[in-house]
Amino acid sequence: MASHPRPVSPHLEIYRPQLTSVTSILHRITGGFLSVGILPLVYWLIAAASGPDAFNQAQALAGSIVGRIFLFLWTGAFFYHLLNGIRHLAWDAGWGYELPAVYRTGWTVLIGTVVLTILAWVLGYWARGNV
């Protein structure tokens, strides 16, 4: 029988995204994005150790519009990766494999990410007396 170049599954161009596949790839994307965040974290610690000038410069960078946008995105990525990571650990323990449970925990992760991200920023501004 002649072999034909048949589409390989999952054929991503025509594959309808589902909650299961979206939460899966988001775990990788947020993990990669959070890894990049290690660089500014270590830079910030070095700046704090280096003296007032270096620290003020790092703080100005973090407080700038671009800095705040990235910090917000990292906050969202963090809470997503944390909540979905706990979901993965539950699966590793053999819990939550039934399809309704997979969807229930998936939506919980997404909604929890939005709630905790907003909460963290509201508390952050509130702690600084800006709310």
Binding site: I38, V42, L45, I46, A49
Partner: peptide, 12 residues
């Protein structure tokens, strides 16, 4: 990065 971060913390 781990070494740099920990050394910075020690210095602080």
């Amino acid at each position: 990065l781990a070494a740099a971060g920990i050394i910075a913390m020690l210095l602080i």
